[in-house]
Simulated assay, not measured.
Amino acid sequence: MTNNPMNMMFEWMKVASSYNRMTLSAGEVIARRMMMMASGGMTGPDAMGMMMEKATIFATASERAAVAAASGADPVRITAAALKPYSTKTQSNVRKLRR
């Protein structure tokens, strides 16, 4: 990435757009899981998986951000690296829960 302010703004806007998609997916996942819990449709293994995925994704995101930082990536790339595992998982959860 260059130090051109317009390029930096464009790169941060891509990160912001990805973050917005992730938060929309997360909101849908929360709503669908709440409906499952309220209706008694969530199994014990589902609930445990729901809890365990948080720690796993946090560890993966932290590792990816650390690797990006250690390799000299700029703040945009470090942020994108940390966000990617969360985005991937929330989109995967939405697809799974929509079935």
Rank of each mutant, 00 (worst) to 15 (best):
M1H: 11
M1K: 09
T2M: 12
T2E: 14
N3H: 11
N3A: 13
N3F: 10
N4R: 06
P5Y: 08
M6A: 12
M6W: 09
N7L: 15
M8T: 10
M9L: 10
M9A: 10
M9Y: 05
E11K: 02
E11M: 01
E11S: 01
E11Q: 04
M13S: 14
K14G: 07
V15R: 08
S17C: 05
S17N: 04
S18T: 07
S18V: 05
Y19V: 04
Y19I: 05
N20Y: 11
R21D: 14
M22D: 01
M22F: 06
T23P: 04
L24A: 14
L24K: 14
L24F: 10
A26S: 02
A26P: 06
E28A: 10
E28H: 09
V29P: 02
I30Y: 03
I30L: 08
I30C: 02
A31G: 12
R32P: 05
R32H: 09
M34G: 04
M34S: 14
M34F: 12
M35L: 12
M35E: 13
M35V: 11
M37I: 12
A38Q: 15
G40M: 15
G40N: 15
G41H: 11
M42V: 03
M42R: 03
P45R: 06
P45T: 07
D46N: 08
A47H: 03
A47Q: 02
A47W: 06
M48Y: 09
M50Y: 04
M50P: 06
M51F: 07
M52G: 03
E53F: 00
E53R: 01
E53K: 00
E53N: 00
E53H: 04
E53C: 03
K54Y: 02
T56V: 08
T56S: 01
I57C: 02
I57K: 00
I57V: 08
F58D: 11
F58K: 06
F58H: 01
A59K: 13
T60D: 04
A61N: 01
A61S: 15
A61R: 00
S62G: 12
R64I: 00
A65M: 11
A66D: 08
V67H: 06
A69T: 03
A69K: 11
A69L: 06
A69C: 06
A70T: 15
A70I: 14
S71L: 10
G72D: 14
G72P: 13
G72F: 14
D74L: 00
P75W: 12
V76Y: 09
V76A: 14
I78E: 00
I78T: 08
I78D: 03
A80Q: 08
L83I: 13
K84E: 15
K84P: 02
K84I: 07
P85Q: 00
P85V: 07
P85G: 00
S87L: 10
T88D: 15
T88K: 14
K89A: 10
K89I: 03
K89E: 12
T90M: 07
T90I: 01
Q91L: 02
S92I: 08
N93D: 04
V94L: 08
V94K: 05
L97Y: 05
L97T: 02
L97Q: 06
R99T: 02
R99K: 04
